[in-house]
Write a protein that binds this DNA or RNA. Structure first.
Length: 222
DNA sequence: TGCCAGGCCCTCTTTAGGGCCTT
């Protein structure tokens, strides 16, 4: 598989949380993130996070993370600085990114460190370039695309690693399909927002434009 | 007792409703 099409450094992130909504008081209970540089996983970040209250039995069952584990974990305030350092100024990637983005922004806001994040979404892109799959759950995509994994789901680092593998597979497939020699993050971000009937036209046009312009390989949007 | 997410996307749509995806 040709991963060298991805010259831009990105951070793939996944959160396990106490529920679905930070607006309802839910908090992050585990952070997993991997840094992709030159098409390879170059670094990783993982920590449990004590939410300051007992999580439900349902969350314990879904994630395998129990309250005893969380009781011994550091608080969000203690780990968000390390996460910010790991992210740096790189763009972010997640599966169903709106979910992880709202929790990331909420946790940063609670520590008084508001900042914008630029997210790419593997769910949105997969729906556009793999239109005939039965569903677009991360687990389904990993299995149908034959991506490497340890068989574990709903743990933050494992999910981040599989999302990273999916991100790289998407880049590889687009390279083969449209002849990209490099695919900037921003192109993939725009692809995730392109109306379905216009996806093929967008990619063909973008591929032609990139062929006539040298790629920016600075590795960051900022 | 009844409430308990939100954004995206499709369709039997647009003066709406419901499924999907994340935990």
């Amino acid at each position: 598989m040709n991963y060298t099409l991805c010259n831009e450094t990105v951070v793939v992130i996944d959160f396990e949380t106490s529920g679905m909504s930070p607006e309802q008081g839910d908090r992050v209970i585990e952070i997993g993130a991997v840094l992709i540089r030159h098409g390879k996983v170059a670094d990783s970040f993982q920590t449990l996070v004590n939410p300051g209250f007992l999580v439900s039995r349902e969350i314990e069952m879904v994630t395998g993370i129990n309250n005893r584990m969380l009781n011994e974990a550091p608080s969000a305030a203690a780990v968000m600085g390390d996460l910010a350092h790991f992210i740096g100024t790189h763009p972010l990637v997640a599966h169903n990114a709106s979910f992880d983005q709202k929790f990331l922004e909420s946790e940063f806001a609670l520590t008084g460190k508001k900042r914008p994040f630029n997210f790419g979404c593997t769910l949105k892109i997969a729906r556009r370039i793999y239109p005939d799959l039965p569903n677009y759950k991360l687990e389904t995509l990993v299995k149908l695309k034959g991506l490497a994994g340890n068989g574990q789901f709903h743990r933050a680092l494992a999910d981040a690693e599989m999302t990273a593998a999916l991100w790289l597979r998407i880049i590889s497939d687009l390279g083969q399909r449209y002849g990209f020699t490099d695919i900037p993050f921003e192109t993939l971000n725009k692809l995730g927002k392109t109306p379905y009937p216009q996806v093929d036209q967008f990619l063909q046009k973008t591929a032609e434009e990139l062929k006539s312009a040298p790629p920016d390989t600075t590795g960051s949007l900022f």
